[in-house]
């Protein structure tokens, strides 16, 4: 049986530890890396080391950032009376696509899931509560609309209410540009439950 060079094998097993990458894809990536120029390979390696060295978490909102506090927390153009709560830093990018919505953000670092060993103390919830002062008028909870995200949202609502701050939840229902005809019964029912007066 033929075995490839040891260093190639090592690269393949390193790559296959990345999320969404199996043995086969890792092999394909490794052979691609073998073919690229030395310079390109060095750039790739350097940028991996770079993010590890330079990027950390903002100590206010726990977004990923090269500076502390992060660019979002120090941005004067943002509406500093609203905090939008998300599960992961990557969700901020998704919410950034929204127009006319420039709030401050707060990254929880996950969602409540005792089955995975994640309880309230494992999330940045205390840090969120410590941000609630008189300048904050609304907290928008934008956790995912699954069971754990929903439970996290309801739990946060209970904690934040006593602070006298309005707590809102992102709506769920029909996608924009979607056709009513193709929506399933559950989606339609949920959309109707969240209907609004015109």
């Amino acid at each position: 049986m033929y075995k490839s060079a040891e260093s190639v094998g090592k690269l393949v097993s390193q790559l296959s530890r990345l999320p969404g990458i199996g043995r086969k894809t890792a092999g394909r990536l490794a052979f691609h890396i073998l073919k690229i120029s030395d310079e390109e390979a060095r750039e790739l390696a350097a940028s991996i080391i770079d993010v590890k060295e330079k990027v950390g978490n903002c100590s206010i909102c726990f977004n990923i950032s090269e500076s502390d506090p992060c660019a979002l927390c120090t941005d004067d153009k943002r509406d500093k009376s609203i905090i939008c709560v998300v599960e992961e830093a990557s969700d901020i990018i998704a919410l950034g696509k929204a127009e006319d919505f420039n709030p401050l953000f707060h990254v929880l670092g996950g969602k409540l899931s005792p089955l995975d060993g994640i309880g309230p103390d494992d999330l940045y919830i205390k840090e969120l509560l410590s941000r609630l002062d008189d300048s904050i008028s609304e907290v928008v909870v934008a956790t995912n609309p699954d069971v754990e995200g929903e439970a996290t949202a309801i739990y946060l609502n209970k904690l934040i209410k006593p602070f006298g701050v309005k707590v809102t939840r992102i709506a769920r229902g029909l996608p924009v540009g979607g056709d009513l005809e193709y929506a399933d019964g559950v989606t339609i029912t949920r959309a109707l439950q969240g209907r609004q007066e015109l």
Binding site: L112, P114, P120, V147, E150, A151, T152, I154, Y155
Partner: peptide, 8 residues
């Protein structure tokens, strides 16, 4: 923390 959702 799952009680409110379970109630709903």
């Amino acid at each position: 923390p799952f009680d409110p959702l379970l109630i709903q």
